[in-house]
């Protein structure tokens, strides 16, 4: 690096103060423009604000890939039935797969206790004032959980359809859960989340006969935002559609094994 003005290699370019960008050679032979210590200068950064989070997420992704662990980031608004759906999924999966859960909530360990009762090791992350999980928190939770090779890991994000959309955790897929007690225009109201998700679960479908909720309109709205999003109608309570959701998990888990030296069955 140039010790006079600090120009370094890479994307970081340094332009001196008010004048045009200078492209001086770095031998500094006979070069005498005034770089005073108090002189204002311009640094072109072009740095992604989320770069740090993305670096943690990449580390998590590499850790999971090496172990063939399928990680799913479950996102929804509060009250969509995410934890009940998760508990039910664990009960259906646990006999044939190792299942682990990372629970994110602002406060309490209630959800992790429900998940442990359903038969999966769970780590609770309390974000305090934070509105989302980030790659760094999940990295620490992974160290503690140490999921077995070929496992399925559910990450239940903080109930919030806004912030978790922007934070990669290293998961294979974001799965967004929308319940029929919400509005069918939610995908349009919170488009970032539906754009970031690969699968939408339309939950509490057993309540549909009692409501005006239009399932097809909800799915059509999600596809306006994200033409390739898949949708499954489920009810964690009645069990309807849960077999299709589990098939989707198995297919995604199979993809997580591809390229591993000793692929499990």
């Amino acid at each position: 690096m140039c010790s006079v003005c600090g120009c370094g290699p890479g994307e970081v370019k340094i332009l001196d103060g008010v004048s045009e960008p200078h492209d001086h050679s770095h031998d500094h032979g006979g070069h005498h423009h005034a770089h005073g210590p108090d002189q204002a200068r311009l640094i072109e950064l072009e740095q992604d604000i989320l770069a740090k989070n993305n670096a943690y997420a990449d580390k998590n992704r590499a850790y999971l890939a090496a172990r063939g662990v399928l990680a799913l980031n479950l996102v929804s608004s509060p009250g969509s039935g995410k934890t009940t759906l998760l508990a039910r999924s664990i009960e259906m999966l646990r006999d044939r797969r190792d299942v682990y859960v990372i629970e994110g909530d602002q406060q309490t360990e209630n959800d992790a206790e429900r998940i442990r009762a359903a038969g999966a090791p769970a780590i609770q992350i309390n974000t305090g004032k934070g509105c989302h999980l980030d790659g760094h928190m999940v990295g620490h939770a992974l160290e503690k959980l140490a999921p077995a090779d070929g496992a399925v890991l559910f990450i239940e994000n903080v109930g919030n359809l806004v912030c978790p959309a922007g934070f990669d955790l290293g998961e294979a897929h974001k799965v967004v859960i929308l319940s029929v007690t919400e509005g069918e225009d939610k995908p349009l109201k919170y488009p970032d989340m539906f754009a970031a998700a690969d699968l939408m679960l339309l939950n509490k479908i057993d309540l549909s006969p009692h409501l005006d909720f239009d399932d097809d309109a909800a799915i059509a709205n999600a596809r306006k935002v994200n033409p390739s999003i898949k949708a499954i109608k489920v009810s964690a309570r009645s069990g309807e559609g849960m077999d299709i959701w589990l098939q989707w998990i198995e297919a995604a888990r199979a993809m997580a094994q591809v390229g591993r030296p000793q692929a499990a069955e």
Binding site: D38, Q39, A40, R41, L42, I43, E44, L45, E46, Q47, D48, I49, L50, G166, A195, R223, K224, P227
Partner: peptide, 20 residues
């Protein structure tokens, strides 16, 4: 059509700094 793929508008970057 809604068969659109976003190509720009998602930027979230620090572009430049003026420093002393």
């Amino acid at each position: 059509s809604h068969q659109l793929q976003v190509t720009s508008g998602e930027e979230l970057r620090i572009k430049e700094l003026e420093v002393n």
